[in-house]
Nucleic acid binder design. Structure first.
Lengths: 338, 338
DNA sequence: TTGTACGCGTTATCAT
DNA sequence: ATGATAACGCGTACAA
């Protein structure tokens, strides 16, 4: 920061008024005469004065920024969701500090600690896939710092959350597969610790049960969120003696991997293998055949999460009931299903 | 922020030492006895004391955060680049405040103003496509706040920049198209104001000139960064009486649009139309045929930009020479070219 | 080795 | 309608 930055004191000295008058005038305090307000503002404009937010924040006891903690920015869903948060934060004059955990629990803890120290006004968090210990979240709540989970949540913590209906839409997807005549339906999911993956698994299970399909553990796959693991798992699944004739994948990225593997093995989509992904990423509609997928309201999820967070921030802290907001997602059927 | 937050004063009172001693002890000041250092740290640990970064920042005259201003987070390149910046910032204990301009010049100005007021330690910026006025950048420099441009830069401002060799790699791409027998080669670029698009256009032009190809203005397309504009432009280009038999696209996203249009019009890739994109997005290798593209060192670009920024931040401000770092990108040839 | 006193830039409280 | 003063929480020059 340059030393020649204009501050309240400078304006006050020049106009021969007190600093408090300047401070108030700039913020349109009603008890300052219109005349001085005008004088102050004009000079401030001329000198290109900008209030020092750090000093303001020290007074406020917290920063005019919220912390957003996500697994990876390059996951399409998070980039979208963050845009939704920005829309809200911008209007209230808040900045967004974004941190990626890269699916590491340790990194997540360190980030939370760091952001607490930074005195951000609140957290919006989507868990890393490796997170199994929740003390850092408890610490946030313990310090009465507002916290909202979105997408990947943590049931053990009593706070607001914004999620989609993972169970329902997975169920719907599997029912479509059943209705289109598929007999051996698999679920290609994320790590066992990931809530939303398990919710989708439950939807899958429920759909099978409702139609009296047997549950085959060979058809339930858990894999890490990296291309290599997914590739190995895909190889194993599609080389089974009785390979599946339909797969619900946890993400479009996983579905991409399954496309790859299916092509390698000469398995035709959708005649021999139906495929449904999750996220409706931009390129899904370009694949041949185009990928059927679940369109998630990522932007709305981010926006809603931010709105709820600011409710928490602005509400008196003593009294509030945690709410869970469930947004609907949409099954988009394209060429990869019958 | 909770009122019962532990501060230096509390620790000092409990241990009957002065606040400064606590302050110094916590930061391992050598002139504090090992014994008291130990005592202080133990108690701080017990009470789960966390230094108030806002107060520290007020002292330091700037925040322990840098501002990153990009057009859109959902552009793959920026998500990648930000990961690179994070790696650097994390080690130095800095946060990253990310703002999207959504390709709006007004938004960019507002963001810069806001971040200046927040007293961030420095800026890393990639211009919006609509930016034609550079006063906000001049203001940053005027206030001696460190600034590094990356990817999309601004030549009028004397500061550091990290870019790729847009000219060279575009030239190389077009030469490949020429060598593979293409005769009517088009460039499908971004808005006229976008530096890097124009650089690539120059590379395109140079390659054509070197091989004594005529320059046909019908084959030089400028379009906005939204799917609709791109779609219209693609339609126009591919319906020309003499349609191109090869296209260098500014981005993979544009290339996707060209795939779509080519399929609609029944134009075969690559036999009737060769296609090269930019960015090497994950799905490019999955298309049929797979998209040839330019792989950009996005992560390295972000990392380098951050490294240079922190050099500026830590160096005495009086003396430094602006540097321009040019990173090499790689032509990746796949099925969409002959 | 430790303590005192002041400053960082702003806002809130209490006067006037 | 305006001013003086303290406070926000920490770091540091100067003392001791």
């Amino acid at each position: 920061m340059n030393d020649r930055t204009i501050k309240l004191k400078d304006i006050a000295r020049i106009l021969s008024v007190s600093e408090s008058t300047v401070s108030r005038a700039l913020r349109d305090h009603p008890r300052i005469s219109l005349a001085t307000r005008k004088r102050v503002k004009t000079l401030a404009e001329q000198l290109d004065y900008m209030p020092n937010q750090v000093a303001r924040n020290l007074q406020n006891r917290h920063m005019n920024a919220i912390g957003v903690v996500v697994p990876k920015l390059s996951y399409y869903l998070y980039a979208q969701a963050i845009s939704g948060m920005e829309e809200v934060a911008e209007q209230l004059g808040y900045n967004i500090i974004i941190c990626q955990t890269n699916e590491s629990a340790e990194r997540e803890q360190a980030i939370v600690q760091e952001l607490l120290s930074t005195r951000i006004a609140g957290f919006i968090i989507s868990l890393s896939s490796a997170t199994v210990n929740f003390e850092h979240f408890a610490k946030i709540k313990g310090r009465k710092v507002p916290l909202v989970f979105f997408n990947r949540e943590c049931e053990d913590i009593h706070t607001d959350r914004v999620i989609i209906d993972n169970f329902g839409v997975a169920q719907k997807a599997v029912e479509h597969l059943i209705n289109s005549g598929c007999k051996r339906i698999a679920y290609f999911g994320g790590p066992m610790e990931v809530q939303i993956s398990n919710r989708r698994l439950e939807g899958y299970t429920a759909a099978l049960a409702a139609h009296h399909f047997p549950l085959n553990s060979d058809y339930i796959v858990h894999t890490e969120f990296n291309p290599e693991s997914a590739y190995q798992a895909a190889d194993h699944l599609l080389r089974l003696p009785q390979p599946p004739d339909a797969i619900l994948a946890f993400s479009d990225q996983f579905a991409y991997t399954l496309y790859r593997k299916a092509r390698e093995l000469g398995i035709a989509i959708p005649s021999e293998l139906s495929l449904i992904g999750f996220n409706n990423e931009p390129a899904t509609s370009l694949l041949l055949p185009a990928l059927s997928t679940v369109d998630q309201p990522a932007y709305a999820m981010g926006k809603t999460a931010a709105e709820i967070l600011f409710q928490q921030i602005q509400r008196p802290k003593d009294y509030y009931r945690a709410q869970t907001k469930i947004l609907q997602s949409q099954l988009v059927l394209r060429g990869s299903t019958l």
